[in-house]
């Protein structure tokens, strides 16, 4: 039964120093799905993604990925196992070209340079606007292009589970659509996506599962269309 979920989180707590942010989170993510986590500022959404990726420690509870416990694995080991995270805000190498950023994206796989170049060409096929900016420094790209680049960098690591922290933050409606379309295309290829989003309505209209996180606890997990119709959610998060 457990194998139908690519990720299972059971009773996890975690936080920073003496500030416990997550108070026993339970969540099971089906393989190939697109989940959107919504919640107020400071609810612990980013903390939850960091905990799944192994960037902060899980203080109690378990994280199970593809049927294997990864609770004690480091961020690097989890990336190698197939969990990739694109953090909130800009996260690339601004003085290196798009091409060099993509090569570094595959760093964890220890590929030979020729293989790496071939793979980065394949990954960038999904991102036509990046191909046009191939030799431009990442720092000179637009916000939307940088977000695409960061997703492409993490895809170079070949994750089965892609965690995206507010990928549409600060983007105009056009680039935001492009990000969502890319995410849909990825799930169509079998990659599971868990994303945190402030543009809750736009994300919930497209994704499969909606999760509401409140004060470090999961308060609702439903199919996304049901979450959209939920009266409390409409009032608190969707401004409807």
């Amino acid at each position: 039964m457990a194998e139908q979920f690519v990720l299972e989180i059971r009773g996890t707590t975690g936080g920073y120093a003496d500030n416990t942010v997550l108070h026993g989170v339970d969540l099971a993510i089906p393989a190939g799905s697109w989940t959107t986590i919504i919640g107020a500022n400071g609810a612990g959404k980013s903390t939850l993604l960091k905990l799944i990726a192994g960037i902060i420690a899980c203080r109690s509870g378990r994280v199970i990925f593809q049927g294997t416990e990864v609770t004690r694995l480091s961020a690097l080991e989890r990336l190698r196992a197939g969990i990739g995270l694109v953090p909130q805000g800009r996260c690339n190498f601004p003085l290196l070209s798009v091409a060099e950023n993509l090569l570094l994206g595959g760093y964890s796989r220890r590929l030979r340079r020729a293989d790496l170049a071939r793979e980065s060409a394949a990954v960038v096929a999904r991102f036509p606007q990046l191909r046009e900016r191939w030799s431009v420094d990442a720092g000179n790209l637009s916000g939307g292009e940088q977000q695409m680049l960061e997703m492409a960098m993490v895809l170079m690591a070949r994750p089965q589970l892609l965690l995206l922290d507010e990928p549409s933050l600060g983007l105009a409606p056009g680039p935001m659509q492009a990000v969502f379309e890319t995410v849909r295309a990825l799930t169509a290829q079998g990659i599971t996506v868990v994303m945190v989003e402030q543009n809750a309505r736009q994300a919930l209209e497209r994704c499969d599962i909606g999760v509401v996180l409140e004060l470090g606890r999961v308060s609702l997990v439903e199919p996304a269309n049901r979450v959209l119709e939920h009266p409390d959610i409409r009032r608190s998060f969707l401004g409807l």
């Binding site: 961020a75 690097l76 953090p87 690339n92 190498f93 994206g105 760093y107 964890s108 960061e150």
Partner: peptide
């Protein structure tokens, strides 16, 4: 350039 991005791509 960016230590957080290093963690993202799996640089130790």
């Amino acid at each position: 350039q960016n230590r957080e991005a290093c963690v993202m791509v799996g640089i130790d």
